[in-house]
């Protein structure tokens, strides 16, 4: 009986060690959404629906980007209870750039550098409760950054 108890502890901790690295990433990479070439498909894969235009989403990006390999985008959602923000570049070969989920005191505000293949809208979709809000900013790209 004692040996069985000991074995269960050993096996239990071995299993815990194997599972722990996976648990470090609770989210699963949404392969389908990231491989989608059209905004509507990527949005579908993220369960985005009925998104409405909002003045309460700020996108600060250059009007013209010399080099599409590095376009700095500043994002801020003033929509109460913003849970997540998805960034899209509509004319990139794959349209979804990134998805950000906020918790435990993280403000829905980011600065990030993205790649743009050509002149396109940078489009944001904010999730708040069961509602989706969107805003876009056009960036003229002079040199392709996706290669």
């Amino acid at each position: 009986m004692q040996r069985r108890y000991f074995l269960s502890i050993v096996l239990g901790s071995v299993t815990a060690c194997l599972i722990a690295p996976i648990n470090a990433f609770a989210a699963i990479w949404n392969k389908q959404a990231f491989e989608a070439t059209k905004f509507s498909n990527a949005a579908n894969d993220l369960a985005i629906n009925n998104e409405v235009q909002s003045q309460d989403i700020d996108i600060n990006a250059p009007d013209r980007a010399e080099n599409g390999a590095i376009v700095q985008v500043e994002i801020n959602s003033r929509i109460p209870n913003t849970e997540s923000i998805a960034i899209f570049v509509e004319h990139n070969p794959t349209t979804l750039i990134g998805h950000f989920t906020f918790a435990n005191g993280a403000l829905p505000q980011l600065v990030i550098r993205i790649k743009m293949a050509e002149t396109s809208d940078v489009k944001l979709v904010v999730k708040a409760g069961n509602q989706y809000f969107t805003a876009a900013k056009n960036v003229v790209v002079l040199e392709n950054g996706c290669g």
Binding site: V89, G98, F100, A103, N104, A106, R113
Partner: peptide, 16 residues
């Protein structure tokens, strides 16, 4: 956890 991110190939090299 405060921020959970999924990134695609559209994030620039040496992500900032």
């Amino acid at each position: 956890t405060v921020l959970e991110m999924q990134w695609g190939t559209g994030i620039s090299k040496n992500p900032y």
